[in-house]
C-alpha cells in the first residue's frame, strides 16, 4: 500500500466522485452524473423500489433524500449525458427510445407503489449532493404537487377520424344514395364516386369532432384535470386514420374503470371514428404546476 509509488498522485488526479455511489463503484469509475427519474415522499415505497430497478446504461437505481422527499437517481457517464452528449443521443431515434423506455420503466415501477412526480426526460445533476439541494430548494412545490397527484393516475384518450373505415362501412351515407341515371358514363360515375368520397371524409371529421367534444364532456365529470397534447402525426403515429384529439386526464384511481367505460363506447356505431384509451400512466402530463401544464 504505502509502497505504491503512484498512490498520492492517482488520488489527486482522480476525478471528483459523485456522492452516494455504492462503495464498489467509487474506485476507478469514470466521471458520472446523477440522472433523476422521479421524486416522491421519503419512505418505504421508494426505498424498497430503488434497489430492484436498473436505470440507464445498466446503472443501479438509488435514492437521494432531503427534507422528507426522495429522488430516484442513477449514475450515468458524464460525457454521454453532458449537453452535447445528450443531444447526440436524443437525435438518434433508437437511443431516444432506449432512454425513454428505461426512464419510463423506473417511473412506472415507482408509481405502482407510491405517488411520484415523474421528471421530464433527461434531467441530470452533477451528483447526488446537487439533487438533494434541489429537493431542499423546491420542497414546498414538490410537496404540493405530490398531494395533488396522490390517489390519481393519468389516462390518455385519443380520437381518430378514419374516412376509409367509414367508406368501408356498409351503412348508407347520411344524404342517401346519389340519384343514378340508368346509363352512367364512366366520367359521371367517377365524379359521383369522388363526391361520395369527399362526403364520407367530411362526415368522418365532423363526427370525430363531435365525439371528441362528447369525450371531454363525459370525462370532465370523472377526471380532476385535463391536458391537451398535440395530435399525433408522422411516422410514429401508427394508428389508422388521423388523430384529431390527444388528451390526458388525471383520474382518481378508484374511477379508472368507470372513466374507461364511459369513454370507450362513445364512438360505437359512429362510422369513421375511433377512440383509443391508453394508461393508466404515472401522472406525467400533470407533473408541472397547473398554470404551466395547460398547453392548449
Amino acid at each position: 500500500m504505502t509502497s505504491h509509488p503512484q498512490g498520492d498522485e492517482a488520488t489527486a488526479a482522480a476525478p471528483r466522485q459523485p456522492l452516494g455511489l455504492p462503495p464498489e463503484q467509487r474506485e476507478s469509475a469514470p466521471p458520472s452524473s446523477s440522472y433523476v427519474y422521479a421524486i416522491g415522499r421519503a419512505g418505504a415505497g421508494l426505498d424498497t423500489a430503488a434497489p430492484r430497478l436498473t436505470g440507464l446504461r445498466d446503472g443501479r437505481v438509488r435514492t437521494a433524500s432531503a427534507d422528507g422527499l426522495t429522488a430516484l437517481v442513477s449514475s450515468v457517464p458524464a460525457d454521454a449525458f453532458s449537453e452535447e452528449g445528450m443531444k447526440a443521443q436524443l437525435e438518434n431515434l433508437t437511443e431516444l427510445e432506449e432512454i425513454a423506455r428505461t426512464h419510463h420503466t423506473v417511473v412506472e415501477a415507482a408509481h405502482t407503489g407510491t405517488t411520484v412526480l415523474p421528471m421530464r426526460l433527461a434531467t441530470v445533476y452533477l451528483d447526488d449532493a446537487r439533487v438533494r439541494s434541489m429537493l431542499r430548494e423546491r420542497g414546498a412545490e414538490f410537496d404540493a404537487l405530490l398531494s395533488r397527484l396522490e390517489g390519481h393516475a393519468e389516462l390518455g384518450v385519443k380520437v381518430y377520424a378514419d374516412p376509409r373505415a367509414a367508406a368501408a362501412d356498409p351503412a348508407p351515407a347520411s344524404d342517401g344514395p346519389e340519384p343514378a341515371d340508368p346509363p352512367v358514363s364512366p366520367g359521371r360515375a367517377y365524379l359521383q364516386q369522388r363526391r361520395a368520397q369527399r362526403r364520407t371524409q367530411r362526415d368522418a371529421y365532423r363526427a370525430a369532432g363531435a365525439v371528441a367534444d362528447e369525450v371531454r364532456g363525459r370525462a370532465a365529470a370523472l377526471a380532476r384535470d385535463r391536458v391537451a397534447h398535440r395530435p399525433q402525426q408522422g411516422e410514429l403515429a401508427a394508428g389508422a386514420g388521423e388523430n384529431i384529439a390527444n388528451e390526458a386526464y388525471l383520474v382518481p384511481t378508484d374511477r379508472l374503470r368507470e372513466f374507461h367505460q364511459a369513454v370507450t363506447g362513445l364512438a360505437d356505431g359512429v362510422p369513421g371514428v375511433r377512440i383509443e384509451v391508453t394508461g393508466p400512466w404515472a401522472p406525467y402530463s400533470f407533473a408541472t404546476p397547473p398554470a404551466e401544464s395547460r398547453s392548449a
Binding site: 433523476v36 421528471m119 421530464r120 397534447h229 398535440r230 390526458a248 408541472t288 404551466e292 398547453s295
Partner: peptide, 10 residues
C-alpha cells in the same frame, strides 16, 4: 408525448 412535453421540469 409524456416524457418530452410532460414531467416535472427542473
Amino acid at each position: 408525448d409524456r416524457l418530452l412535453n410532460g414531467g416535472a421540469v427542473l
